[in-house]
Design a binder for these strands. Structure first.
Length: 271
DNA sequence: AACGTCAGCAACCGCGAAAGA
DNA sequence: GTCTTTCGCGGTTGCTGACGT
């Protein structure tokens, strides 16, 4: 239903349509943008012959008419990623949407509010689900029995507690530099890189790698040097060997060095 | 069949940031 | 440097259809 609303502009009171868009309006908008591009939203509606405000046109274009938009059927993997990214970024829907090609911030926000916010899945739950999935596929999670190689045996189940502690909320710049990466370059390795940087760069004004327990995981710096393992939080003692007493810790894996050397953390961390 | 309730989703609104004059 | 305009984001509203009584 389209209703008319008065809006005061430079040329006095003008009537603008509100509510659901009609197919005719959609067509006008698409035609105009194809010819002239999607800039100058303020003046676009008048030029395109639409009785809409610029904001409304922008929203319609970005969320529904723009090429490459995926609608509905959010897969389990996408949900999983949304939950994890929400854990990391909070309600920064546009950033989360940027990691999900074809999805819009509005759609993700709606999906979160209607489906995911009611669930109480934690990072731990997701990792448990992942591990179960892997065990289901391969029969056993131990690397020695794994036909796909030793990496399949790792269980980097970082606890939500650690994850939240690690979240560098005072280091928005670093977070931004990571989330601004093109989707093709999105790799959890980047996450680990910049968390190790936190420690290297002097911990200015934010949570340091140390505070966040990053070095507990034995980060590898970009120059290839291994950050010393400072305590046994993750089941590895100060000498770098496995400590059975610490194995109850949330982060557990069969070979720490292999985990650090893994070229595809994303596979283990984000799926 | 009529009515009420609820969930899902499209769209709007207000605000802050960025860009331009 | 300041003011104005424009853009983009996140929160919220309200419409619609499905379902239950």
């Amino acid at each position: 239903m389209v209703k008319k609303t008065e809006r005061v502009g430079k040329k006095g009171v003008v009537m603008v349509n509100k509510g659901a868009w009609t197919a005719e309006e959609d067509q006008k908008l698409v035609d105009y943008i194809r010819t002239h591009g999607d800039k100058k939203w303020r003046t676009l509606p008048a030029k395109a012959g639409l009785n809409r405000c610029g904001k409304s046109c922008r929203l319609r274009w970005l969320n529904y008419l723009r090429p490459g938009i995926k609608r509905g059927n959010i897969s389990e993997d996408e949900e999983d990623l949304i939950i994890r990214l929400h854990n990391l970024l909070g309600n920064r829907w546009s950033l989360i949407a940027g990691r999900l090609p074809g999805r819009t911030d509005n759609e993700i926000k709606n999906h979160w509010n209607t489906h995911l916010s009611k669930q109480t899945l934690t990072i731990d739950d997701l990792n448990l689900k992942l591990n179960t999935k892997h065990e289901g596929v391969h029969g056993h999670s131990h690397p020695s029995n794994n036909p796909l190689g030793p990496m399949q045996g790792f269980k980097p189940t970082i606890s939500e507690e650690h994850f939240d502690a690690w979240l560098p909320e005072n280091n928005d710049e670093l977070v931004s530099s990571w989330v601004d990466l093109p989707v093709s370059e999105f790799d959890v390795e980047q996450l680990f890189d910049f968390t190790s940087m936190l420690d290297v760069e002097g911990n200015e004004g934010g949570s340091s790698g140390s505070e966040l327990g990053v070095e507990d995981y034995g980060m590898t710096h970009q120059d290839g040097c291994q950050e010393p393992i400072k305590n046994d939080l993750c089941g590895v003692n100060s000498q770098g060997s496995l400590d059975p007493q610490a194995m109850c810790n949330p982060l557990e894996f069969d070979d720490f060095d292999q985990f650090i050397g893994c070229q595809d953390y994303e596979l283990y961390f984000f799926h």
